[in-house]
Write a protein that binds this DNA or RNA. Structure first.
Lengths: 343, 343
DNA sequence: GTGAAAGCGCTAACAG
DNA sequence: CTGTTAGCGCTTTCAC
């Protein structure tokens, strides 16, 4: 009888092995293996017979045995800090879509936001001898970077723009992003500018770029209001109050995330503060809802999905032995100028 | 020299095997294996010596060999339709967190929203002989359900509330959710009610519940405005126009997702339609931003993260051989009554 | 508490 | 194009 979905076992009995298929097809085990893995290496008629026998027996290859013998793994490990961050979830979906249809399977591991455990997480997947790894984020601990380099497998980092990737990197320039917004603020004619959000890691470069963009218009960044750690709407609401208290004549704020910026807009509406008349607000990320906030939110668009998809494609190419011309790809960041800065 | 992160290889040479560790530790290979897998079965002093040898050699167990020999896999496969849906991404994060710290690893597979390929996707992971599987969603095709049942491994379904799970299910009652909102609409005194959103699968039960909730107050559901497929803010904006055109005296709309509902609110603000004065609006899902829309959105809170976490815990319990008292767990859905229905 | 031998299921290497 | 042999690295089984 033909099982539509076999598990490599018939009933509770012993698993179906190549040997069983071989017997039914009247060939040797290695021919079964070849018919399934390298169809071209087998005569068409033989292949047909093997496939019939596979269907008949419900055979499913045992990847443990196959990888053990061949020395090849078809596992790609994806390291994610959190899927609660929609940018990362979207990137991962891009990776998933890029890998779909290939012979590779994705294993997931969580790095968390702390770099302390980074190396432990990486170590925990090594028993699966991954063919390649992708980090949704950059690898921070130098110890981990060195160790990964020594593994000798393709490594893809994402989201950052370190000049010295472990191997390959698909990211975007935080500096350029900040500069774009600084220039936009300058063009809008704002005079007293604040930044609010993360201030460390790659965000530092964003702030540098922001300063430089402002500088082209003779402006200074008058206040950096740090909001590290998790940032939700409520943080944004508070931030608006805090900033207007600390810098009363502030007329434009660049927030490190759309969520913070949206919180600030909500707070402004609640307090009857005119946006952008009294103070302009901009965010970062271009989340789905940002065009629909009122006033609509000026922000920087980052192509999360495309980043993941590109990272996946590049990694697959490398795994296929193809040469990669550019080991570092920086996706452009686009300014979405909307009403919240439109004076 | 001690490698902090080994890959089971020293330089480009041959992999480090148990045998190598055994030689260094002055024991037999099986003792190394036991020291690592069942520390209690080995004298403490021996264990210490083995662990030192492991560190010294950079040994990393080969999971392919170990699973092949033992017949046990420590892979759990997670099937997701899309990580772009924040509810699913959040659920998956719950699963990830629940499994973290256990000896299991997660493999990802994408079912997509079509049930056509469901069985192919499931088949594609069987070579890894997963110890258990989790579906972020219910399995729709009967063929797949039967096949999964025959696999004889723990199967977790999520989000739905089928009376006949393949094995275990952590979900929520769509019917109750709908009923809650129907009752809320009745209590608010709305007279002409519409529903807009998905109309098939488990959503059908939500509509049934909604009707029954309304019926308690002598109300009928006067319009069902289907929006199947992907639903974004723009769809919600259009939907408001379409519904007010089709049912001009409509004074309350229940949307199948918060995104649709938020779109409708934005559209209402743009058209100067008073919410909830002219028409009340409610959503489903309680996404992060819903308390911050203006007016804040009445919606149904679904515990996506907790659902995933619970699903993960239950599956692990089952894999540990513990008995599960309730194979089906329905998480309560909570009404979040906010301004958009507050007359 | 430890060890010797065997074999999990597959495919590389070599042979024809 | 197909087959024979051997062995990937580990852990089960049985023995001490």
């Amino acid at each position: 009888m033909v099982l539509t979905l076999g598990n490599g076992r018939k009933g509770a009995g012993r698993p179906v092995r190549v040997e069983d298929v071989a017997r039914v097809a009247g060939v040797s085990p290695i021919t079964v293996s070849r018919a399934l893995s390298y169809p071209d290496k087998v005569k068409e008629e033989t292949r047909t017979r093997v496939l019939e026998a596979v269907a008949q027996t419900g055979y499913v290859v045992n990847r443990f045995a196959s990888s053990l013998r061949s020395g090849h793994s078809n596992i790609i490990t994806v390291f994610v800090s959190s899927l609660l961050n929609p940018h990362f979830a979207t990137s991962v979906q891009g990776i998933v879509d890029a890998v779909e249809g290939s012979s590779y399977h994705l294993m997931f591991a969580q790095t968390g936001y702390s770099e302390m455990l980074e190396i432990d997480v990486v170590e925990s997947v090594l028993p699966f001898r991954p063919a390649g790894v992708v980090f949704t984020g950059v690898v921070r601990a130098d110890q981990t970077r060195t160790a990964l380099q020594n593994l000798g497998i393709p490594v893809m980092e994402m989201w950052g723009n370190r000049p010295d990737p472990i191997d390959m990197l698909v990211g975007s320039s935080s500096y350029d992003a900040g500069r774009l917004m600084g220039e936009h603020f300058g063009e809008c004619g704002f005079r007293h500018v604040a930044y609010c959000g993360h201030t460390i890691d790659r965000t530092a470069q964003r702030i540098d770029g922001f300063r430089d963009g402002l500088a082209k218009f003779g402006l200074e960044l008058e206040l950096v209001h740090p909001k590290d750690g998790t940032r939700n709407f409520a943080d944004g609401m508070n931030a608006l109050d805090e900033i207007l208290e600390a810098l009363p004549d502030c007329d434009a704020i660049f927030f490190g995330t759309d969520v913070l910026a949206s919180g600030a807009i909500v707070r402004a509406v609640d307090r009857d503060i005119d946006i952008p008349g009294r103070v302009a607000i901009a965010g970062y990320g271009d989340l789905d809802f940002t065009p629909h906030v009122r006033p609509s939110l000026t922000t920087l668009h980052v192509s999360s999905y495309e980043m993941g998809y590109e990272a996946g494609r590049m990694l697959l190419k490398r795994l296929n032995g193809e040469a990669i011309s550019n080991l570092v790809i920086l996706q452009p960041i686009r300014l979405e100028a909307r009403d919240s800065t439109n004076r």
